[in-house]
Write a protein that binds this DNA or RNA. Structure first.
Lengths: 357, 357
DNA sequence: ACGGGCGATGTAAACGATTACAGAAACAGT
DNA sequence: ACTGTTTCTGTAATCGTTTACATCGCCCGT
């Protein structure tokens, strides 16, 4: 193996910097002929440094490609500029849109976003609960209450030391942390009333999991709507689902076997509503004629289902944005509202039809 | 406002620990009557510490509720046990399912997941590119090539120092990093052939964005499929979309105006396929009779659309899992394959019908 | 009795930033 | 010339771990 006869010029893409380790603040200081203190100041408070020194530092920074090490900063400053977002399921289109809103404003403020995907696993709940306490993140947004308060063991981990928290979409009773949500009860009432106003008399309710705080509100709203329309409440018409397409599809049979058969179903989310409509169609039932359906959330597919789905619109992205803003306020020590309620509206499409007189 | 007459007992939930700061390793050491070195060893390598000391340390840890500070660990160990996942859009159901797979195995291995949501913003691309270089994370998974290589400025940021990377779903030409993907070309060919075998003769293609590496493969597969079926390639039947429901719906008109009208459309994702079917139905076109439709991805809603959507199934969660595993291998210095191709399969549903003789 | 080996422990030096404090230099006002 | 003020800079402590190295017993074989 012969040596090359001529020295090879250094590759142009690596400017001055040695092949080895990333540049440290000390390298920059040496190169600029100043102390590390001056480098640090030149970067974080340029006005406290003479123009000459500042220029030399900037030059040295450019040459070395220096980027402050984040672990060191975190340690020294006792904050990480990271936020943990805890949610039941990233792959759920409802949450992931909220995630997008959170990311929007977190990024704007220079914060990074760590995902805690609970996935129904108590292990994960425990993990992320301690995660909060270990200085990994400056704050957290909780999309359900499992982490603190209402774990399956009845108690869950104790509220972590002093990390600011914000609850999003679902209240965490007794946790005493700010909450951003929609008025689920009012929305459910409006949806139920809407069906009643279209002449529907046997209005069923396909709910989410029973333990759910937010679901309690919706059930209450459903009953209020019935009452307001002068319709009797029939517990037999309330069926519990788990927010999945499959749950919706699976519920169809049950509803059809009820006697008398319901002429409308209010579903606690759009997935179940779409799953239900699909199964009803397959069973030869006319939607919306025989059975009208209302969903909840207004996910993108609601407008694409056949028939298009009448549903309660939730401002998902805005929910995320608002939650993140409140958390940032608390992180910055600014005053923040204890609770925010965002508006919903009923989006009328083709899955509800008028009936009778 | 009257003072309470009796002192209140300390709340029972705070065991021994002072109200102030979180416990440091030194607190534990003092309490256990050992040095900090022993505490550290007791926790990370118990067998190197005498049973007696170990017991005292554990007791002290329990009493103080000590959790090692992560910033300090990261700094000392030069690793963060965090992985950055960069993707175009968290709220997209295609990516978020992959995210779930990634999270599965990352969590299992004790790694946390930071999300870099590009959202089409060059700012964000730049941000996350430097993010990689600042010791925030030990490695990254890239769901598109924008971060390195093919940014809009033609170059993007230089490949970051030495952070292990893995590309997922979309190759990053020239980056020389492991890639996990499906055989997009073969899958597109199979989809096109499937339509041809059902007697479809004017098969259109609703594609993703043109710059897309993966999209080039699908277009190539589409043309191969046509060729294999003995059908002519007509550039007029290739329409570019952007993977959204709206793009699918918007493309319907164009297809219907073509003369002769196409009798099938192969769509590069399910959202566009569903949007297209919706708009076709609204225009009074019979799907699958007049126009058959095939999608790509097999998202959950594919089975719930009317008609149910025939589509190419991608193992999204498994893609995520595999990508994460390879990254972990590289992080651990284990040998890792340079590239993995996962299988797809065509899921036949109701959006394709046979035609003619 | 002595040296070697071994296991358990402690001391102190990293890791890479920020910043309190103090010193130096420059300048102005008397 | 002296003092006080202002502006800039450097020294060194600090954040909370981990771990190389040194030390200290202790046991064992000769």
């Amino acid at each position: 193996m012969r040596r090359r006869s001529r020295p090879i010029p250094a590759p142009p893409e690596a400017p001055a910097e040695a092949v080895g380790r990333a540049a440290r603040i000390e390298d920059v200081a040496r190169l600029a002929g100043v102390s590390t203190a001056t480098v640090s100041r030149a970067l974080s408070a340029p006005e406290r440094v003479s123009p000459a020194a500042r220029a030399r530092v900037m030059e040295a920074v450019a040459q070395t490609g220096y980027q402050p090490n984040q672990a060191a900063r975190s340690l020294r400053l006792q904050k990480s500029r990271m936020v943990l977002v805890v949610l039941p399921d990233v792959s759920n289109i409802f949450f992931s849109k909220i995630l997008q809103g959170i990311e929007d404003v977190l990024f704007e403020a220079g914060y990074g976003m760590i995902i805690g995907n609970l996935d129904g696993s108590p292990d994960k709940e425990a993990h992320f609960a301690t995660f909060l306490a270990t200085g990994h993140v400056d704050g957290a947004i909780l999309l359900n209450g499992h982490l603190i308060g209402q774990g399956r063991d009845g108690r869950g981990a104790p509220a972590p030391t002093h990390v600011p928290l914000v609850a999003l979409c679902e209240a965490i009773p007794g946790a005493g942390i700010p909450l951003v949500e929609v008025d689920n009860r009012a929305a459910a009432r409006a949806a139920t009333l809407h069906l009643a106003e279209r002449g529907r008399r046997r209005i069923a309710h396909l709910t989410g999991p029973a333990g759910n705080v937010l679901e309690r509100e919706r059930r209450a709203g459903y009953r209020e709507g019935l009452a307001q329309a002068g319709l009797p409440f029939d517990p037999d018409l309330v069926v519990e689902g788990d927010y999945t397409l499959a749950a919706g599809a699976g519920a169809a049979d049950g509803f059809l076997r009820r006697a008398p058969r319901p002429d409308a179903v209010f579903c606690s989310n759009d997935e179940m509503a779409i799953g239900l409509m699909g199964a009803l169609a397959s069973a030869g039932v006319d939607v919306p004629g025989d059975v009208s359906v209302v969903g909840f959330d207004d996910i993108e597919f609601a407008a694409m289902a056949r028939p298009t789905l009448t549903t309660v619109h939730q401002p998902r992205r805005e929910l995320g944005r608002t939650g993140a803003r409140i958390l940032l306020d608390r992180l910055a020590g600014r005053p923040a509202p204890a609770s925010v309620v965002l508006g919903t509206r009923l989006v009328e499409r083709m899955s509800v039809a008028s009936k009778g007189g």
